[in-house]
Design a protein around this nucleic acid. Structure first.
Lengths: 163, 163
DNA sequence: CTACACATGTAGCAATCGCTACAGGGAGTT
DNA sequence: AACTCCCTGTAGCGATTGCTACATGTGTAG
């Protein structure tokens, strides 16, 4: 793994932990064990570093979630309660928050955010489709999950989408 | 309307237009026709100004949406297509983006954001319940609307929730 | 050994950040 | 007239921002 690759991981971790709005070069570089100078050297700019970090996060994407589930497609009536249990632990709160931040930027017209947001969402949708015995329900259920996540972030206890 | 009240409106407008992440005192004061000095004087701090602006936005809340709809409760099969038409115009993209920003902060543990996010979401939920002939479906439909908004922000065309 | 590309540390620049100290201006009260 | 209270402009502070100039190290190919 190249040096730049290591930095990319560190940047991804920093963004996930602190959020897009809290990114600045010096603290992020410190967390990566290097200097702002090096981040700019390797990624060209702050925006480049963020883009690399977000892309890395999108690549890692579903891995963490995948690891918590038994393999193979399931009917929604089985899969959704499993997902609900996982989401309710809060383990993915940071990921949800980041998705919402990127989505907000995308809604405001930020072009790089549009790309990343689209990738994050469609990767999740495709993963969901592959995990369901009723893949045609993926979009509807994804909509429900995202909405549930937003309401959870707002402190409201909406019902989790079911089969 | 007091001077501070005018500033509050201007701050609310600035936040809606540019997003929470882009708020800084001097540009916001310029948009309000005053100086950073005055915003700090009236609101105590940047955080105080933001809180006042967000509260004002929450107060205004549903007004703009309300104005676009015929009065009285409707069945979901009627109301939801109306909402879909309105949302698809993009007129509320900035509002959605702001809600997502606040929700993200709330998910990361920011206490003031938790309050505002909760108020924004529960006001919308209550409004929806009052607008439906089946008010018990408000939470489920709100979840669908929020999820739809997120996916729309991501550039995905999910189906709008229906009756 | 030399040459050259990659990588890095030090130092600093101009801009912006949130915020504050200080000096009033203007209106109303005594 | 003197005093007080609300409001505002000017100026600036120390910190942080993204980024860069310059010098240097380090490893590899010729």
């Amino acid at each position: 793994m190249s040096v730049k690759d290591t930095y990319t991981d560190a940047v991804a971790g920093f963004i996930l932990e602190h959020g897009l709005g809290a990114v600045s070069l010096r603290p992020m570089a410190k967390a990566a064990g290097t200097s702002d100078r090096m981040l700019v050297y390797h990624f060209g700019s702050k925006a480049g570093a963020i883009e690399a970090g977000l892309t890395r996060i999108a690549e890692r994407g579903i891995e963490a979630l995948e690891a918590l589930l038994p393999p193979g497609p399931r009917p929604a009536t089985e899969l959704m309660p499993m997902l609900e249990g996982i989401m309710r632990t809060g383990a993915f709160d940071a990921s949800v928050a980041l998705l919402l931040e990127v989505t907000a930027l995308s809604l405001r017209g930020d072009a790089p955010s549009k790309l990343i947001a689209n990738r994050l969402a469609s990767d999740f949708r495709d993963w969901l489709a592959a995990r369901l015995t009723e893949p045609e329900r993926a979009a509807e259920l994804l909509r429900g999950i995202e909405g549930w996540g937003v309401l959870r972030g707002c402190g409201l206890d909406a019902p989790f989408p079911t089969g």
